[in-house]
């Protein structure tokens, strides 16, 4: 069943009816929870209600020259609650990490109706167990996130995206390895076969994408060093749109491998379109025959977690 809440009472009554009917709450909408609760630019921290979209949050933070350093797809639709619960990430995760690295505090309502806080509003904090991170990727199975506090980053003065076409898988792996082992500090390291803006109709060639962020001086210097490794051209992140708006609207498959295995895996995909986070080993593609399953958490712990946090099973299944 779907939960739509304008007030905390709506959540309580949805829990009540789930307990009575035995229906699980499988989707969560919090239109009444969209406020920015605090933003302290001098501390680089902010607390926001879980129903606000990531885009709206970023817009507010940008007025102080700051941002939450994550870039998952569709920020205009993605709420803060879903960002955490679904643990979604984007291309800049290579340099900036995923949402778990930025989350410092959380308020949530548990299946028994109790409202809990974990973490806090300071950037360093080890008091108490880390329930915040337990909720990252929990997909609504342990409770409903109401608020989250984050450590923020200053918006970089400049950002530069560079692309380079490779001719063979050997060349691709050699170049990726050289970049990974170099002194460069890329924020983004992707591999795709979606062509360039000019040749968007012709797939097949692979492109290595490298992104730098920082002061203008820093990005220029890194761009220069990258070109010394191999000639790259300044480009954009437009390839991400070409992957998303492709012929099939089906949700892309995601496979995870070690970074060193990305090239080999992408080769097996043949002509299927893909975008890979080459630095992290995450490959998005449209070949369902290659749907890779992610490793799972130990079942014994999942079972115990579910039975202690949600004994009546009113929330989503746990994984």
């Amino acid at each position: 069943m779907q939960l739509t809440a304008s007030h905390i009472e709506d959540i309580e009554s949805a829990f009540e009816s789930a307990r009575e009917t035995g229906a699980r709450i499988s989707s969560i909408h919090l239109p009444g929870f969209q406020k920015l609760l605090d933003h302290h630019p001098e501390n680089l921290t902010a607390t926001v209600e879980a129903g606000m979209t990531l885009q709206a949050f970023q817009e507010k933070l940008s007025t102080a020259g700051q941002w939450l350093a994550v870039d998952p797809p569709n920020p205009e639709r993605l709420t803060i609650g879903a960002l955490i619960a679904e643990n979604v990430s984007g291309p800049r995760r290579f340099g900036l990490g995923t949402v778990r690295e930025h989350l410092i505090g959380m308020k949530a309502v548990l299946a028994d109706g109790s409202i809990i806080r974990s973490g806090g509003k300071v950037v360093k904090n080890v008091a108490g167990f880390d329930i915040c991170r337990l909720f990252v990727g929990s997909r609504g199975s342990l409770g409903i996130i109401l608020e989250a506090s984050f450590r923020l980053n200053p918006l970089p003065e400049s950002e530069m995206i560079m692309g380079c076409q490779t001719q063979s898988s050997e060349e691709t792996e050699d170049l990726l390895e050289a970049i990974m082992k170099s002194d460069l500090n890329p924020m983004l390291l992707d591999l795709h076969n979606l062509g360039t803006e000019e040749q968007s109709a012709s797939y097949g060639y692979w492109q290595i994408m490298v992104g730098f962020a920082g002061t203008r001086e820093e990005t220029q210097a890194q761009m220069h060093s990258l070109n010394n490794l191999n000639p790259f051209k300044v480009t954009t992140l437009d390839y991400l749109n070409r992957f998303g708006n492709s012929d099939s609207d089906a949700t892309p498959e995601t496979t995870a491998v070690r970074p060193s295995e990305v090239v080999e895996y992408c080769e097996q995909l043949g002509s299927t379109k893909f975008v890979a986070r080459a630095g992290n080993g995450v490959i998005h593609h449209h070949d369902s025959s290659h749907a890779g399953k992610l490793a799972r958490n130990p079942q014994v712990l999942l079972d115990r977690l579910k039975s202690t946090f949600d004994p009546k099973g009113i929330l989503a299944e746990i994984s």
Binding site: L134, G137, S138, A256
Partner: peptide, 21 residues
């Protein structure tokens, strides 16, 4: 993340929950 395995794993961040315990 398992040794020899990919960085991402499915579901809750149990590693995160156990660090600092």
């Amino acid at each position: 993340t398992q040794p020899g395995g990919p960085e991402d794993i499915d579901g809750c961040d149990l590693r995160g929950a156990a660090i600092g315990s």
